[in-house]
């Protein structure tokens, strides 16, 4: 089924349309959400909520736009909300005093993160996922969308509502940080000459 037909079915609120949409995109969205939020159960929730929102707001979909980037944009927003909620629940707010005597609030991130072993069964996969979760959100989403989900720069710019130049710089920065974090894994897998 081509995208145009699928969009027409969705706009008519046909169940077949939603079934087809889920068949095509559910695994990609679950994978993107898992690599982004770091928990498989949360990732499934993100994907489900994404499809429910598609159903709710399908009238707002512009016919010229790409369905794939629209879906990823919704999934990204849902995932960001989930991360914010988790941050509020699991971080401690530390109030420090800076040099000028002003009180500064700092968020202490949760350090007890463990990748889902049902998904990442190997040690290497777990270490990669741990490294991904250490990246700041803006770099993580860029790297996941480009290097794991295989979206183009234009598509990522569309999903994240940023300029292509910003996408490129975020991907580069994210990759550099990830390489630093995965230095040991590189050495184990590819030997020292890779560094």
């Amino acid at each position: 089924m081509d995208e145009q037909t699928l969009v027409e079915l969705l706009l008519e609120r046909k169940e077949d349309g939603f079934r087809e949409l889920m068949r095509v995109y559910k695994d990609d969205l679950v994978n993107f959400a898992y690599r982004f939020v770091g928990s498989y159960d949360d990732a499934v929730d993100v994907a489900q909520e994404t499809f429910v929102r598609v159903f709710r707001f399908i009238e707002t979909f512009q016919r010229g736009a790409r369905l794939k980037t629209w879906l990823y944009a919704i999934a990204r927003n849902v995932a960001l909300s989930m991360l914010d909620e988790r941050k509020r629940r699991m971080t401690t707010r530390l109030v420090e005093t800076d040099d000028e005597g002003q009180e500064v609030e700092r968020d202490v991130p949760d350090v007890s993160y463990m990748p889902d072993r049902a998904v990442d069964s190997t040690i290497v996969a777990q270490r990669i996922q741990e490294a991904l979760m250490k990246l700041p959100t803006v770099y993580r989403e860029a790297v996941v969308l480009r290097d794991i989900e295989g979206l183009t720069y234009e598509e990522i710019a569309d999903v994240c509502k940023i300029e292509i130049g910003t996408v490129k710089s975020r991907i580069n920065r994210g990759r550099t940080m990830l390489q630093e974090l995965l230095r040991d894994v590189y050495e184990e897998l590819y030997g020292k000459q890779s560094q």
Partner: peptide
């Protein structure tokens, strides 16, 4: 190397069974 690492060693998470039915009942 990084992209190779991500593609070769990071499995693709898939939706669980009954995912579609759960969403459809919600819809």
């Amino acid at each position: 190397l990084l992209r190779r690492l991500l593609q070769e060693h990071l499995p693709h998470a898939t939706a669980p069974e009954g995912f579609e039915e759960e969403v459809l009942s919600c819809l």
